[in-house]
Simulated assay, not measured.
Amino acid sequence: MADTLIVRAAPQEYICEPGSWDGLEQHLERRGISSALVVRGGRSWEAAKGYFPEFKRVEIQFYRYGGECTYAERDGIASEVTRLGLQSIIAVGGGKVSDSAKAAAALLRIPVVILPTLAATCSAWSSLSVMYDKAGTMVGFEVYPHSNSLVLLEPQVILDSPPELLVAGIGDTLAKWYEADAIIAHLPSPSEEIALAHYAARRCRDNLMAHSAEALAAQEAGELNDAFVRVVETNIMTAGLVGGFGEDYGRTAGAHSIHDALTILPETHRLLHGCKVAYGVLVQLVLEGKQEEVVRLLPFYEKIGLPAALKDMGLDGLSRKGLLRVAARAAEPDASIHRMTTTFDAVTVAGAMEELESLVAAIRVRETVAASC
């Protein structure tokens, strides 16, 4: 853990309401910003461009994000801003677009504005970037001393996004509780900052367990309702508050170590971040000896489509050697799994993954038999 806990609780300003993107130019002008580079994705931009406002006074240039949040991508965005002499960066897209834009803005020490098109991570809220190599393997993360200048959340844009991305966001956000609790619950006297992180993490779990199914049904029907907006804000805002207040005590533990380890397998690069994290939650629970919580969570996973076993991710053919390779990566000395109170090695992690396979298989067989009676 860091010796000094630094609170980076929130963006400077945040608005969540239909039509929130319409005031973007005015928000820039209030900040004295007269020019910006819009960093956008591909498919996400096609879905969102109809909501992006026209500008009459602020100069806007566009940059197509390259597909991965790498240091080279960061440098490319920064070079474009410098070449054009622009004052700020606007990210329109998902988590990796936001992380790339934040990284470039931090490098140049200029404001960054986030317009999320997905609710798959809390990237729009947080003042950090998860960095990958060009092959999609996670290599680390960067934490910044400046908050995002502005986040404008347009719920209708998220409603129009692919449902599987919201499911992934639910998986990633659910982990906030299980990872934060694994770190914080054993502290004899948590500081007020850490207590707030713990509360926000619990709020993540409670909101998602209560509202996710209804939110996904609303998205399928194309209807904007309270459950949908609540889940979206939980994935972006409430999740961001966990790390924002708790820093290392509210960020990642075992579940994200499993995610990071899975990224060494090329066949997992097609899988969404939150789905791998959701699987990691169950592995972490087995490591903690909380198999009963796995049993409690499995119906929720099944209902909304989160993976609970290697087969669900297309990895049922993973050999024992491959399993140990993943487990060794998860248990590397600097891995976040070691923020938990117990020290885990590769053999222990691999054993937990194998135990999870057996546990999930047994539950599913039992449910199949019960359904046929």
Rank of each mutant, 00 (worst) to 15 (best):
residue 366 R to I: 00
residue 210 A to P: 03
residue 247 E to I: 00
residue 175 A to M: 05
residue 170 I to F: 03
residue 128 L to G: 01
residue 41 G to H: 08
residue 313 M to D: 06
residue 236 I to L: 09
residue 193 E to N: 13
residue 161 S to V: 01
residue 115 L to Y: 05
residue 293 E to Q: 14
residue 145 P to K: 11
residue 264 I to Q: 13
residue 204 C to W: 00
residue 159 L to D: 00
residue 348 T to S: 07
residue 33 I to K: 11
residue 105 A to F: 06
residue 140 G to M: 10
residue 315 L to T: 10
residue 7 V to S: 12
residue 249 Y to R: 07
residue 132 Y to M: 06
residue 315 L to I: 09
residue 359 L to W: 10
residue 31 R to H: 12
residue 192 E to D: 10
residue 132 Y to Q: 02
residue 228 F to A: 03
residue 349 V to I: 15
residue 224 L to V: 04
residue 101 A to N: 02
residue 39 V to Y: 03
residue 299 P to H: 11
residue 291 Q to N: 14
residue 239 A to I: 01
residue 24 L to Y: 14
residue 260 D to W: 05
residue 182 A to W: 03
residue 74 R to F: 04
residue 40 R to D: 03
residue 185 A to P: 02
residue 58 V to E: 07
residue 12 Q to N: 06
residue 334 D to A: 15
residue 290 K to T: 00
residue 314 G to P: 04
residue 285 L to G: 03
residue 166 L to C: 10
residue 220 E to R: 15
residue 197 A to Y: 11
residue 206 D to S: 12
residue 115 L to F: 06
residue 33 I to C: 12
residue 211 H to I: 00
residue 92 V to T: 07
residue 344 F to Q: 03
residue 333 P to N: 08
residue 259 H to L: 08
residue 211 H to D: 12
residue 112 V to H: 04
residue 222 G to N: 12
residue 337 I to L: 15
residue 327 A to T: 04
residue 155 P to F: 03
residue 87 Q to K: 14
residue 182 A to S: 15
residue 348 T to Q: 15
residue 48 A to K: 01
residue 244 G to Q: 04
residue 12 Q to H: 11
residue 282 L to A: 03
residue 38 V to H: 07
residue 178 Y to N: 00
residue 299 P to M: 10
residue 53 P to I: 04
residue 363 I to Q: 13
residue 265 L to R: 11
residue 29 E to A: 13
residue 14 Y to N: 05
residue 251 R to G: 01
residue 33 I to V: 15
residue 151 V to Y: 03
residue 312 D to Q: 11
residue 88 S to A: 15
residue 148 N to C: 14
residue 230 R to L: 06
residue 163 P to T: 06
residue 363 I to L: 14
residue 148 N to I: 07
residue 264 I to S: 11
residue 313 M to N: 10
residue 309 A to M: 12
residue 372 S to Q: 12
residue 103 A to L: 09
residue 47 A to Y: 02
residue 231 V to E: 01
residue 137 T to G: 05
residue 274 G to A: 08
residue 78 A to N: 09
residue 284 Q to V: 05
residue 160 D to T: 05
residue 110 I to G: 07
residue 133 D to A: 04
residue 49 K to C: 14
residue 283 V to G: 06
residue 58 V to D: 05
residue 242 V to H: 02
residue 130 V to Q: 03
residue 99 D to S: 04
residue 163 P to V: 01
residue 50 G to R: 09
residue 258 I to C: 08
residue 10 A to M: 13
residue 309 A to E: 08
residue 7 V to F: 09
residue 170 I to P: 00
residue 329 R to C: 08
residue 59 E to P: 00
residue 80 E to S: 13
residue 288 E to Y: 09
residue 163 P to I: 02
residue 243 G to H: 02
residue 297 L to K: 08
residue 365 V to A: 13
